[in-house]
Amino acid sequence: MKLVKVDFATDLWRQDRIEALVFGVTFAGVVGFDLLTGILLGIGVSLARLVYTFSHLDIRVEKDEASGVAHVFLDGAATFIRLPRFAGVFEKIPAGYDAHIHLSGLTYIDHACLTMLMDWGENFEAAGGRLHLDWDVVHRLFEEKAWRPANAT
């Protein structure tokens, strides 16, 4: 108990409650069981958070059938874990529509989702649709996350 800095825990709670939860679970495991169990519990909660972060994707579609316009808003991480849902949403947009894909809410897009989006876009436009996609956002996501060299700071 003397090793815990209460000021640190309260600051952590104000900054990021999930991280504070990881800290609290680790602390409770160390005090309640033993050091190894506490650390393993903390790792388990951290892994659960990581899986949630990389599998959480909100997709909102707004269609205006009168004007033939569809807006698709993507928020979260577009990874292969959500690829079936990701692809299913785009397949429901009728040919001939004017499709606006809003990517600014994405925190990450992996190669599988990007490839699927590009292939769908080609097929969609070949079928008479018009695709509006902000490639600057895609470029930024890959610059910041995927293509940064390992030794870059």
Score class of each variant (00 low, 15 high):
15 Q>N: 11
15 Q>P: 02
15 Q>E: 15
16 D>T: 06
17 R>H: 13
17 R>T: 12
17 R>A: 10
18 I>V: 14
20 A>L: 11
20 A>H: 07
20 A>D: 05
20 A>V: 11
21 L>K: 10
22 V>N: 00
24 G>F: 08
25 V>R: 05
27 F>C: 15
30 V>M: 15
30 V>F: 08
30 V>I: 13
32 G>S: 09
32 G>R: 10
33 F>D: 10
33 F>V: 05
34 D>R: 07
34 D>M: 06
35 L>Y: 12
36 L>F: 12
37 T>K: 07
38 G>L: 01
38 G>H: 01
39 I>N: 05
39 I>P: 02
40 L>P: 00
42 G>N: 02
42 G>H: 00
42 G>T: 06
43 I>H: 00
44 G>L: 03
45 V>I: 14
45 V>G: 01
46 S>G: 06
46 S>R: 00
46 S>I: 00
46 S>A: 10
47 L>Q: 06
47 L>M: 11
48 A>Y: 06
48 A>F: 07
49 R>Q: 04
49 R>V: 04
49 R>W: 01
50 L>H: 05
51 V>L: 09
51 V>K: 03
52 Y>N: 05
52 Y>C: 01
53 T>N: 04
54 F>V: 03
54 F>E: 00
56 H>T: 05
60 R>H: 12
60 R>A: 10
60 R>P: 01
63 K>E: 11
63 K>A: 09
64 D>E: 13
65 E>F: 09
66 A>L: 14
66 A>T: 15
68 G>C: 11
69 V>A: 10
69 V>Y: 03
70 A>C: 14
71 H>I: 14
73 F>A: 02
74 L>R: 01
75 D>E: 15
76 G>H: 02
76 G>P: 02
77 A>E: 08
78 A>N: 02
78 A>Y: 01
78 A>S: 07
78 A>P: 02
79 T>C: 07
81 I>Y: 13
81 I>L: 15
82 R>T: 10
82 R>L: 08
82 R>I: 04
83 L>V: 06
83 L>S: 06
84 P>V: 05
85 R>I: 15
85 R>N: 12
85 R>K: 11
85 R>P: 05
86 F>S: 02
86 F>H: 04
87 A>D: 15
87 A>M: 14
88 G>A: 09
90 F>Q: 00
90 F>G: 01
90 F>T: 00
93 I>W: 00
94 P>Q: 04
95 A>Q: 11
95 A>K: 08
98 D>A: 06
98 D>G: 04
100 H>C: 09
100 H>Q: 09
104 S>C: 07
104 S>A: 13
104 S>D: 08
104 S>L: 09
109 I>E: 06
109 I>V: 13
111 H>M: 11
111 H>R: 15
111 H>Y: 13
112 A>L: 10
113 C>L: 12
114 L>M: 14
114 L>V: 08
114 L>R: 15
116 M>I: 07
117 L>G: 06
120 W>H: 08
121 G>K: 04
122 E>Y: 11
122 E>D: 12
122 E>L: 12
123 N>M: 15
124 F>E: 10
126 A>C: 14
126 A>I: 11
127 A>M: 14
127 A>D: 15
128 G>L: 08
130 R>D: 14
